[in-house]
């Protein structure tokens, strides 16, 4: 009974961990610019890695190695925002203008070609791939 419960708990954690990693990958492919992609890239680290590590901890049971997975998670939670912030800040500093809601509305109402050149360059790949 306990073994059964443990098995399903591990299974569920792994499944959801994989699911969020998958969503994050889809997000990176679909979202329009570097800023919005940074949002979803952190999902892999927070829930993707988090649930997978929880599965590892559950599979190991009460062992000293279980503590390592918790520590690992702690450090992932420290490094993840640092990396996301570093990416966003360096993007901002190299002059990449984030695509904002107003720009998008404009490009929808006017014409795709009429939006700012930087935005179209970023958009081109996704628009072609996803909405086709």
């Amino acid at each position: 009974m306990i073994d059964q419960l443990q098995f399903w708990a591990v299974f569920l954690c792994l499944a959801f961990g994989l699911f969020f990693t998958f969503v994050s990958t889809v997000g990176v492919l679909r979202l329009p610019d570097v800023y919005s992609r940074a949002h979803t890239a952190s999902q892999t680290d927070t829930l993707g890695a988090g649930l997978s590590l929880a599965a590892v901890a559950l599979a190991l049971g009460w062992e000293s190695t279980t503590i390592y997975t918790v520590l690992l998670l702690f450090f992932v939670f420290l490094t993840n925002p640092t990396a996301a912030h570093a990416i966003a800040r360096s993007a901002a500093e190299s002059g990449i203008t984030p695509l904002t809601a107003e720009d998008e509305l404009e490009s929808e109402t006017v014409d795709d070609g009429a939006s700012a050149p930087g935005d179209t360059a970023v958009n081109a790949g996704e628009e072609g791939g996803d909405h086709a």
Binding site: Y35, T40, P81, A84, H85, A88, A91, A92
Partner: peptide, 26 residues
């Protein structure tokens, strides 16, 4: 605070100019 904001997907701290956080929200 800035790290917690970044850690929750949907909000991302782009810059911190002193206490003025520039946050990208999705």
């Amino acid at each position: 605070l800035a790290n917690s904001i970044t850690l929750t997907p949907g909000t991302l701290t782009v810059r911190a100019d002193d206490q003025r956080l520039i946050v990208h929200t999705l």
